[in-house]
Design a protein around this nucleic acid. Structure first.
Length: 603
RNA sequence: GCGCCCGUAGCUCAGUAGGAUAGAGCACCGGAUUCCUAAUCCGGGGGUCGCAGGUUCGAAUCCUGCCGGGCGCACCA
């Protein structure tokens, strides 16, 4: 039961990271490797340290008076080793080898080990940033685990709304973060193109077309009423469709659903299955293509648009059901086939095949996830709306039953988005005149601001999206604040040219020891944190860490900018300072690229 | 009723496998530009981390209960 619970927790489902295979060595491994080497010389601590990852004990210090990094390992080993924290710390520090990268190591407070990195270590990091460029902060590619990231997957019955925008931005950014961490990621959009709602779509389009031929149509409440339905009706190929002018002569009664179902049945009879199916497929493809265009404009692309229909036509649902039946977790009752979901922690068993022989949506879901694993993906990440949480245990249980593991499935539930304009919450009802589509939001605030704001909060937090701030081109807007730092750096280099000067980066590298201002130290520290931030954000599926980091980095740069001139007469100092801000530009650009936000040269 | 998520400054939110004195932005007050973009910077006030217990060297963080908000509990998709 506990592992099932753990799937809701981003930390415990995160993929362990591996620091042993780095090419260039960023800052944190300097500490963890020397610490590990010291521990290797202390066999008396071996048992205590066995299940304590050294990396987890190391963190950046908040207070520069505590050095650059601190480890609490001595305190955490105190109990299992039955020694005092300070004694342990003393033994560890005695075993630390001297290094050009470490200036000093101190034991402080209740038993922290504080590490002070040398200027040389920071200078090496700056050089590494420039050498690696776009690759800085990225881990080497690895083979496994192969990740399948499914997100958005909105039903193709209408345009994307602002809630889907959050899914798109979040999913795309998490995908970028995972790739930066070296994992092979495949992005997939599951198209719910089967089932009753597709018939309703087909009916809606047909009725609008019928209307356009002059037939009086009493459009049902249960149909899709949006204007886009009329547009589709006007553009699709309806040759061969007959004008069924008697659909409403004897109006069906019942509730909203019954009326729609009756109209669908009448229309199918009037047109024939094939003709109705043809209209339905055209409508579906029209909407799906529109969604794809919308997302592409938003910088969100998929490796595959996976059709739910294909699960049936390719026999994948039958394959999954066969796997289920083989496991003995399926039984019959009241003519239906049930999956014994309660064996896997669900509240009740679930129907997979109805008494009338049709498969449930749940059957498609487990078949789709079964198929993902069958295709060789090791780890499945689903980004779903918060209203889908009941589904997690069911599908995980299905994976368990079919011979895989519920632990292979990691579900991130994205909470809802509320729009604010002028301090007032924008009502999102379909009928209100206010916009609610993603396309309109992008048009109003721009792609950059939209991508940025969407990922500025964790997925499990409700998001209040303030349109006025997102639109403002002022210091209120953190997007512009970060982009402005990037543009300012580009501007400095343009200025250099206008003054007929050139940046000699080799001279800059040779002169880095001239960077002694507090703002320079602070900026170097922030830059060196970037790989750690990427790792953290990727492991926790938490793009907001990167957002906050970039804001802090931009702040460090702006502070430096205001405190010191870069283009100074002393060529060594000038080249060194230009190197520092060139590195800053690289890191800002890399971080913005992961967020899907542009890094402008001018503003 | 049961399950899941959330509750941190006036507002919007960070807070990393429990760590040292809880941080940003906005708003408010006061300052900085003969100089590389003032879309910038610096300083200041501002907190019962929802409440109450517990775990331990140490809790905003973990556990239990309560209060408040959101979402869900289909042979719908």
């Amino acid at each position: 039961m506990s592992h099932r619970h753990a799937r809701f927790d981003g930390r415990s489902t995160s993929i362990p990271w591996n620091c042993s295979s780095r090419i260039a060595r960023p800052m944190k491994p300097i500490i963890s490797q020397s610490l590990a080497a010291a521990l290797a010389n202390l066999p008396e601590l071996a048992d205590a340290v066995a299940d304590l990852p050294v990396d987890s004990t190391i963190e950046r210090t908040r207070d520069p008076g505590h050095g650059d990094f601190a480890s609490n390992i001595a305190m955490r080993l105190a109990k299992p080793a039955r020694m005092s924290p300070r004694d342990i710390a003393t033994q560890i520090v005695e075993q630390l080898e001297d290094s050009a990268e470490l200036d000093k190591v101190e034991i402080a407070g209740p038993g922290f080990i504080n590490f002070y990195l040398s200027a040389a270590a920071y200078h090496a990091e700056l050089a590494s940033i420039l050498d690696q460029g776009e690759a800085y902060g990225r881990q080497p590619a690895r083979e496994r685990p192969k990740i399948l990231l499914e997100f958005v997957s909105a039903n193709p019955t209408g345009p994307l709304h602002v809630g889907h925008g959050r899914h798109a931005a979040f999913g795309a950014t998490v995908g970028n973060l995972l790739e930066a961490s070296g994992y092979p990621v495949t992005r997939e959009y599951y198209v719910n193109d089967a089932g009753r709602q597709m018939d309703i779509l087909g009916l809606s389009v047909y009725l609008r077309w019928l209307e356009s031929t002059g037939v009086a149509v009493d459009f049902p409440d249960g149909g899709y009423r949006g204007d886009y339905i009329r547009d589709i009706a006007a553009t699709i190929d309806t040759s061969g469709a007959s004008v069924a002018d008697d659909l409403f002569t004897d109006p069906p009664d019942g509730d909203k659903d019954e009326i729609v179902d009756a109209l669908i049945a009448r229309t199918k009879t009037a047109l024939g299955q094939e003709c109705f199916g043809n209209i339905r497929q055209q409508a579906l493809e029209s909407i799906r293509a529109d969604i794809e265009d919308d997302l592409e404009e938003f910088g969100v692309t998929f490796d595959r648009w996976f059709s739910e229909q294909s699960l049936t036509t390719e026999g994948r649902i039958d394959a999954a059901l066969a796997a289920l039946e083989k496991s003995g977790t399926v039984y019959e009752r009241d003519g239906a086939k049930w999956f014994r979901a309660t064996d896997f922690g669900d509240e009740k068993d679930r129907v997979v095949v109805r008494a009338n022989g049709s498969k449930t949506y749940f059957a498609s879901d487990i078949a789709y996830h079964f198929d993902k694993r069958e295709r060789g993906f090791d780890h499945l990440i689903d980004i779903l709306g918060a209203d889908h949480h009941g589904y997690v245990i069911r599908v995980g249980g299905g994976l368990d039953a079919m011979g895989y593991s519920a632990d292979d499935l990691e579900v991130k539930l994205v909470q809802f988005v509320a729009l604010y304009r002028g301090g007032e919450k924008v009502q999102m009802s379909t009928r209100s005149g206010e916009f609610e589509t993603l396309r309109e939001l992008r048009a109003e605030v721009g792609n950059d601001a939209a991508r940025f704001f969407y990922v500025s909060r964790g997925h499990d937090q409700h998001l209040d999206f303030d349109l006025d701030i997102a639109k403002s081109e002022s210091n209120d807007n953190p997007v512009y604040y970060i982009q402005y730092a990037h543009a300012r750096i580009a501007s400095v280099f343009r200025q250099l040219g206008e003054r007929s000067l050139e940046w000699d980066s080799d001279n800059g590298r040779a002169s880095l020891s001239q960077l002694n201002e507090p703002q320079e130290k602070s900026l170097m520290t922030s830059l060196s944190r970037y790989p750690e931030v990427i790792e953290l954000a990727a492991n926790n599926r938490a793009p907001q860490h990167l957002v906050h980091y970039l804001r802090d980095l931009a702040n460090d740069f702006h502070t430096y900018y205001n405190a010191h001139a870069f283009i100074v007469d002393d060529a060594g100092l000038r080249d060194a300072r230009l190197l520092l801000i060139a590195a800053t530009r690289v890191v800002i650009a890399n971080g913005l690229a992961i967020l899907g936000v542009s890094a402008p040269e001018t503003m």
